[in-house]
Write a protein that binds this DNA or RNA. Structure first.
Lengths: 250, 250
DNA sequence: CTGCCTAATTGATTCAGGTCAAAAGCAACA
DNA sequence: TGTTGCTTTTGACCTGAATCAATTAGGCAG
């Protein structure tokens, strides 16, 4: 659990209440404002309360906290996790710039999962109540919210499939390819990137042991599929990785 | 995979286009119309196209089908599943009366999972486009949709935790208790019910082998926690089951 | 009632991946 | 530049649950 010190570490994040301009934001086309007219956009901006910055390992929210904000990641990355009552923790998502956090709280008005920054991360806090009001007035915002939640459900289905039916090797291959795709859609290199998750976190997320992650990554490296130096990754044979993600080509 | 014949079996379901009255529906308070004013309710009813009936094993929709309808279960039960490209199938949900199917299609306009009736099942087909339009006009409908999707995400998180971190025994205990709670909220006995899923389906859903399901149920029975006769279940020691669902008390 | 089909149980054996243990790399910092 | 404290890698061994293989038990058509 990289950076997730046992202590909650909820020291107040930096809070420069600077105004937010979605149009200027680099991930605007992956986020809520996608497809909004300029008028609507400025209304949306009016419910974005402030930009906050979190340091590696810092808590953003945790289960039971009152649901006041949806968080939109501007830069950096965040892990979300849920826990059994006896303390075992399962990471449910690994979120990059442009993604929204806290959507599963809408139903019960309190967060159901914990969110923690994996590296220095900047986010917009969107006032949940006012966003909902706004969604009622502006169809395109409402549509965006529904789309985003629908997409979230779909990604959860993929993770469920992965956890339920795939071998450790397939899980890792799929994981690397998933990152690759997501970096690509953010205009980063799809073949060369830095992992912000530790081996432990990756294993936890994929439902396998940390040691297994290490072993399999080594195996991939020896097979010439990837080059890995600590957290720096280079994908060499995408095709082979894709084959492996489905039919465990061992 | 009970009842899921290899053949799609998409013979047209019975389609009496009878008008629907939500207020008359037994699961009205678990479904979309919850909390709507009478005026709004009749508007909602106007987008409910028809009631359909499916027989055990019959396909409701499958991945790639164009997304035209959200389905609301009136009675019976449905399983949803996703597949790897090499054909392994993972059941992602087991849905009872009052629940909505197809929400993960909203983003891409085509279903991402397959839905199949587990027994004779009756459902309302709600026109997706028109429901979205309506949600834009009627805040309470919109709110309901967001809530329902949020709840869906939350339940997916629970399944992810189960698949990622729990032992086979805990999974079964949790599964039985989950059913119990859901039957209770539908005014059925929480301690005595009939499983509409086969052992194979249950195992698939929980990420364990059919044989393991059988073995563990026998173990539960021997330990006096439950009484099981084929698909008929009686929960005897809820407390013990709850303890087991968390801390594998073996 | 009888035979057939599918679902469920139970036993024996195997294995993927977990757990435990130790060593090696790297980074931060006094 | 050595010390401290991670994170990662690697090895040895173990185990929970999968797989393989019968067997049993209902459900139902004729």
């Amino acid at each position: 659990m990289t950076g997730s010190k046992a202590t909650p570490l909820r020291s107040a994040p930096q809070q420069p209440c600077e105004p937010i301009a979605c149009a200027q934001c680099g991930v605007y086309r992956l986020c809520l404002p996608l497809g909004l007219l300029e008028v609507d956009l400025s209304l949306l901006e009016s419910v974005v309360r402030r930009k906050v910055t979190y340091k590696r390992g810092q808590l953003i929210f945790r289960p039971g906290d009152r649901f006041d904000f949806i968080y939109a990641i501007r830069s950096g990355s965040v892990k979300t996790s849920v826990q059994t009552s006896d303390g075992r923790l399962q990471i449910t998502g690994f979120h990059l710039a442009g993604e929204l956090l806290g959507l599963s709280a809408l139903d019960s008005r309190s967060y159901s999962c914990e969110a923690r920054a994996l590296e220095t991360t900047s986010a917009c806090m969107v006032e949940a109540e006012r966003l909902e009001e706004l969604a009622q007035k502006i169809p395109s915002i409402q549509y965006q919210m529904l789309r985003i939640m629908s997409g979230h459900i779909r990604r959860d289905e993929d993770l469920i499939l992965l956890l339920g039916k795939r071998s450790a090797e397939e899980r890792l291959a799929e994981y690397l390819l998933g990152l690759s795709r997501r970096f690509a859609s953010r205009n980063y290199s799809p073949t060369q990137f830095r992992l912000s998750m530790s081996r432990g976190d990756i294993g936890n997320y994929l439902g396998i042991a940390e040691e297994t992650v290490s072993r399999i990554l080594s195996r991939f490296q020896n097979a010439g599929l990837v080059a890995i130096d600590r957290r720096q990754v280079r994908l060499i044979d995408l095709g082979q990785l894709e084959a492996m993600a489905c039919i465990n080509a061992a």
